[in-house]
Design a protein around this nucleic acid. Structure first.
Lengths: 363, 363
DNA sequence: GTGAAAGCGCTAACAG
DNA sequence: CTGTTAGCGCTTTCAC
């Protein structure tokens, strides 16, 4: 229930008529940014020399260098990006492209990690990271305009779903790009970095089987993603003849879907004694369902999750789960992207990273 | 405990030697993007006409327009951003600047909402949103380079903490900018959009007092943010003579800090019968602490949170909380920013938005 | 309406 | 090492 508006005036907009101006460096003209020419004039050198100083100062006498830097300082000069990009053909920035039809990614703790590592790695090459998003078809087209207009030297794509139109378009434009995760339908012609989903799942399920579990179910991620599919494939290979459709329930990474899937599984296979869940978040829900159904974990049902998230350590019981080398993944992505940008490599690169099983109490 | 590496090979990098080339539009030269000149030649018109078509097609005969568009299509042409920006002085993009020393913001559900609304609003003006971040001092300086180099026409700053150096620098560069939340120390000279923190807190606490609560405590946000300070000020004003330092505990928005603060408060003031918490997340922890201490909510202690987050509805009992008009806030920010960019306004704008108390079961 | 031409501010190749 | 110069691709007057 809502009590109503606390404050009657819906908005107060207050312009400040006089007031102190924001302090700033000396400007040559009113509202005009100083150019490299202004710096050259003040330092008493040529435009070329200033440019050299700006680009690392190689082949410049220390004396000149100091004078130029001083002029830059007093003028408050900073390079005009557009001019530099036009002349050099390089922009010095890279986009992290997130096409999120749902809002999954922003609440994903991995997302922040990726941004952090990307930023750090790119900075080593003097590159800036721009996070760009699209939430629907129109925005996707608009973002496509941006990416193909030469704003960036390359793009890092977040885990795509099958048939993502934006990925197609940008790939066709020739912009160097690296995908996080296997891009279904583009495994060959695009570069990507991904954990070994199939092997991870295979090992996780084998681990359960070796403990004598005979009825091992699985709650999958969405099957239009390579993660969901790859993990299901590994599960299936590990189970072999013991595989049965009734042991599989599809989730969509969300907590709610995990809850529903666990219930479905339990009703279809009441003799379930093992469970491999494609994400920790869904696994946590499964734990709740199992408890409510009176099953002990791991005594009655052993559970393995995926992600090695913080939540996994705090679960009751703490979750045995698959750890992905996310940092490594981000680092490799930037490395590959820069090889593509520099032209050091022209063929698509595919990097598969090993995972490891983190054993805790749930299995 | 970690069982070890699942897969021996740490990485598999597979280049694709032959393979099919990525399909793409016709290119004039090898690796060269078509220019406006190529389009002009193909359409049999001048460069100027093509430019006009590209910029809305006003003052161009329909026939020409169609021919040019056709040429654009067959060439797969898209404008070179750098050249356009250099010639026009406008970039068509706006940065959302997030200087997050801790990782708070990315896990904040509000963050995704801001990105979504900003993107939507900017698109109405043909502008792109770039999310940019800095995690430490060096990255902040690097981001400052980016923002002051003319990459963007303006910047939207996420809720800043006191004395944020980046904000200072960018403000001094003259780049149009709007801050989300009152920027402490720059209230006058910068433009900002913020909820009425003081009034919100005042009303929330008065609501508790009107119920006959006499010992109302508060768990604050960090007191180096305007939110924390403003809400504390409103609390204090509402309490009047009943105010006491022992009723105040500072948190930092994190769940853990809420837990600790609630415990501290309860031990310092065992007769507590009301609690105003500056965020729902911290309030949820307080509920747990109160329950563990054997206090019933709301019978023994009435609790009011802040944010009206999803978690508030699912709390036990559902949380009475202050709803902020985040969407409105984002919309206003973009509006003000564009007034600044276009020059329609040259004085700083200050927008204060009303909030409303959402009454549920906890108070 | 349309074409021609003058830059936007910078880099990079070339002399010296 | 440093100055000179020719563009980078586009917008935007200015004539016609």
């Amino acid at each position: 229930m809502i009590t109503g508006t606390m404050q009657e005036k819906p908005r107060t907009a207050v312009g400040r008529p006089g007031g102190t101006a924001v302090a700033g460096p000396v400007r040559s003209g009113p509202g005009k940014r100083p150019t490299i020419e202004d710096v050259a004039a003040l330092a008493g050198v040529s435009r070329g020399t200033v440019s050299r100083v700006l680009n690392g100062g190689v082949h410049v006498r220390p004396g000149m260098l100091a004078r130029v830097n001083e002029a830059v300082e007093t003028l408050g000069f900073s390079v005009n990006h557009a001019a530099r990009a036009l002349a050099s053909g390089r922009t010095g920035s890279v986009a992290f492209v997130i096409s999120e039809r749902d809002e999954h990614l922003f609440s994903d703790p991995n997302f922040g990690l990726f941004v952090r590592i990307f930023t750090r790695e790119l900075r080593k090459h003097g590159q800036h990271l721009l996070v760009t998003t699209a939430h629907d078809y129109e925005e996707e087209a608009f973002l496509g305009d941006y990416l193909t207009a030469g704003h960036v030297d390359g793009a890092l794509f977040a885990l795509p779903y099958e048939g993502e139109a934006l990925l197609d378009r940008v790939a066709r434009s020739g912009l160097p790009l690296v995908v996080q995760g296997r891009p279904i339908g583009h495994e060959e012609e695009l570069s990507w970095v991904a954990p070994d989903e199939e092997a991870s799942a295979f090992e996780a399920v084998r681990y359960l089987l070796r403990q004598g579990r005979r009825r091992v179910g699985t709650i999958t991620g969405p099957l239009n993603t390579s993660s969901g599919r790859g993990r299901l494939a590994g599960y299936r290979r590990a189970l072999g003849d013991a595989y049965s459709r009734s042991l599989v329930a599809e989730g969509d990474w969300s907590a709610r879907s995990g809850l529903l899937a666990a219930r479905k599984l339990l009703s279809r296979a009441p003799d379930l004694d093992g469970l491999f869940v494609h994400s920790d978040l869904m696994a946590l829900q499964a734990l709740t369902v199992l408890r409510e159904a009176g099953r002990r974990v791991p005594e009655d049902v052993a559970v393995v999750g995926f992600d090695d998230s913080v939540a996994a350590t705090m679960a009751d019981p703490p979750l045995t789960t698959v750890h992905q080398p996310l940092e490594r993944s981000a680092v490799e992505s930037v490395r590959v992207l820069n090889e593509l940008i520099s032209g050091a490599t022209s063929v698509p690169q595919h990097v598969v990273l090993a995972t490891r099983l983190v054993r805790r109490r749930s299995a």
